[in-house]
Simulated scan of single mutants.
Amino acid sequence: MKKLEFKNIKRKAVDVRSETAISLEFLENNATLPLIIKPAIANLDLAEWTCANRDFIDAKLLKHGAILLRDFQITTAPVFERFGLAICSELFNENGEHPRETVSGNVYTPVFYPSDRKLLWHNENSFNHFFPQKILFACRQPAQEGGETPIVDSRKVFELLNPKIKKLFLKKKVMYLRNYSDRLGLNWQKVFQTNNKAEVETRCRQAFIDFDWRENRLRTRSIRPAAVKHPKTGEMTWFTQAQHWHPACLDEQTRQLFKSSFQAEDLPRNCYYGDGTFIEDSVMEEICNIYQQLEVTFSWKKGDVLVLDNLLTAHGRNPFVGERQLLVAMGDMMSFADIEDLGEGK
């Protein structure tokens, strides 16, 4: 973890109510997210302004769940990381979970996923015990066509869910099952960034993950909540990656490939109700329909920065044509234990 040190920065806060500093707007008149913040004065340093007005930004992020910072021209990894260390107390710099590349320090490329397919909505690392409170994106180069990062208010997903489905998930939770091998997906050495099985087992226990070995192949199971109470707002929010793990949510080509190649328990990823019973395809279809209904998209512009409260807002990625270059950072890590403790104290 790395913390930011500002040198030669005046600590006098900018009056955010003044149009001489920033302007606030939305994509549409009735939109609630993302809140768009633009500089209203020339050469406004985003990291410096953020450092001086952190409480203001945090309050807006809690209200809207997503902030799009536009026209600040953040296009390089060092400048993006500097901003990240201004808006987050710490940045997460241990990332073997997804096939992506480290650009510099605490900055990554987006997760690899075929450009002709849609990456469905999810809350980052919600299948893990530990996850970021904030996730940040910066656009170095927008795609020639498509490539938007659709976002969804997870509070509204929770509100719109069929009460019967909601009650079932709240009671049973979600079991995430994963098989690590060289056959398809990432092997355990890549994800855990070690060749030591004992170290893997220790980390699994620390993260409340059940595991078993099949020669050199690893299978893990973890049970996580499907919905949580936000530790600061007290709002209930749908917080899951079931759309990424359930076979019914795969594109037709991938689903048929998996069906012909694996038994259900041997799929690279799968998910069940927390008691181990199958989640019905119809249930996942209904959940995905709600996400689709609530989805908000905008076209990336070079220099854009998107900040999400990871508990309040899910994100995805649309198919695209041409080269697409985004930077990603994650910060302010917490765990389900933190949420439960804070929730009980309210």
Rank of each mutant, 00 (worst) to 15 (best):
T254K: 14
V305F: 02
M284A: 12
L306Q: 10
M284W: 09
F298T: 11
V307E: 08
D281R: 09
Y273C: 05
A248H: 11
E265V: 05
W300V: 11
P247E: 08
C249F: 00
V307A: 13
C249G: 06
P247F: 01
L308S: 05
F258L: 14
E323V: 13
E285D: 07
M330A: 12
Y272D: 09
D266W: 00
T313L: 00
T254D: 14
N318H: 09
T313V: 04
S282P: 01
N270M: 07
N270Q: 09
G316Y: 02
S282T: 13
L257F: 15
L306C: 13
D281N: 15
D281W: 04
K259Y: 03
D304W: 03
T277L: 11
L327W: 05
T313P: 00
S260P: 01
S282K: 13
W245M: 15
R269K: 11
A314E: 04
S299Y: 03
E286F: 02
V305D: 04
E323T: 13
H246G: 14
H315G: 05
N310G: 07
E252I: 15
I279E: 08
N289V: 01
G331H: 08
V283K: 06
E265P: 00
D309W: 05
M330R: 05
Y291A: 11
V328M: 11
G303T: 10
E295Y: 00
L250F: 14
K301L: 13
L306D: 11
S261I: 01
W245K: 08
A264K: 12
K259V: 01
Q293C: 07
L294G: 12
D309E: 06
K259S: 14
V296A: 07
E285S: 05
M330T: 10
